[in-house]
């Protein structure tokens, strides 16, 4: 019925371009079904590790006065094996499995656990800003990124997405390494390293002190990154960072995204966000005379 919203990223086809970002609501198949019914084109799971992780003590998330959210949940997750068992019955929801690890063998170990699951794609978390030895610390190591992607590509036919963020290295060098190693798509960006201090108690609010900033304040930064990646590489992109309205989503598509991921917005709105953004994009397309998402991707690119 809404095939106008169909979008493709290499071999991955999504009925709608709105995708649940990793870290948000990603631990229950029942919730995935609910989000899918609400209009999500795909859901990305919480980043899974080899073993279950409890994450950091609270406070793990709060809003920033003036806009946005800071979080350091600490990649809490039930572990790849428990998670794979949970999603085994799934047949309907396009599930993108997010993985986090330190070396290529970690990723191989985890992907093997999903042999009996329908996995739409794997998203490699190369950009979590608040856990040591994984995430951004891996993404900053260009050679390691290359090794991980080559290994993962050699053991699965599922599309591989690399999620990059703003770390110590030039993120475009990470994208370059990932593309050269054969990655199928890029998600950009993750949260941006940040903190907040309470002036009355004179303490950092997060138990981990440092976390990641998400929400509307990072949208212009994320948009710039998507635009830069789209200008330099021939690779499908899922734009992510502060998207909260259909206009934001269209902006990212015009910058070069084939799909958009979001999550923080649901702290204010709720699962209805998916339907609202989908219908907003569709109305925009009808008004502008687009028949497919593909025609719109990267339209804002200028020489």
């Amino acid at each position: 019925m809404d095939s106008i919203l169909e979008t493709t990223l290499g071999s991955l086809t999504l009925k709608r371009p709105t995708v649940l970002a990793s870290g948000i609501l990603g631990i229950s198949l029942d919730v995935f079904n609910r989000l899918h019914d609400a209009g999500a084109g795909a859901v990305v799971t919480k980043s899974l590790s080899k073993e279950p992780w409890e994450g950091y003590p609270n406070p793990t998330i709060f809003s920033v006065k003036g806009g946005g959210w800071i979080n350091a949940v600490g990649l809490s997750n039930p572990g790849a094996e428990n998670f794979a068992k949970m999603i085994e019955p799934n047949n309907d929801v396009p599930i993108v499995v997010s993985l986090v690890g330190s070396i290529e063998d970690d990723f191989e170990y985890m992907i093997k656990k999903f042999e009996n699951c329908k996995v739409a794609a794997y998203e490699l978390n190369l950009s979590c800003p608040h856990v040591a030895k994984v995430g951004l610390e891996v993404g900053d190591d260009i050679e390691l990124v290359s090794k991980i992607i080559k290994k993962v590509k050699s053991i699965t036919n599922s599309p591989i997405v690399a999620k990059v963020g703003l770390g110590k290295s030039d993120y475009l060098a990470t994208v370059d390494a990932a593309v050269s190693a054969g990655v199928d798509a890029i998600t950009a960006i993750n949260t941006v390293r940040a903190m907040a201090i309470d002036v009355e108690t004179q303490m950092p609010i997060l138990s981990n002190k440092i976390g990641g900033l998400s929400g509307t304040p990072i949208k212009p930064i994320a948009l710039r990154c998507v635009y830069e990646i789209a200008s330099k590489f021939d690779i499908p992109i899922m734009g992510c960072g502060g998207i909260s309205t259909w206009e934001d989503a269209v902006e990212f598509i015009l910058a070069g995204s084939s799909a958009v991921q979001f999550g923080s917005v649901m702290g204010d709105n709720w699962v209805e966000t998916f339907g609202e953004i989908n219908s907003g994009i569709q109305k925009y397309m009808e008004r502008k005379g687009y028949a497919t998402i593909g025609e719109m991707i990267g339209k804002a690119k200028r020489q």
Binding site: G23, L25, V31, M266
Partner: peptide, 13 residues
């Protein structure tokens, strides 16, 4: 953890 419906910890189905 979050209290605002985004971390998912408190889901009941």
């Amino acid at each position: 953890k979050c209290g605002i419906g985004i971390c998912g910890s408190c889901c009941v189905n």
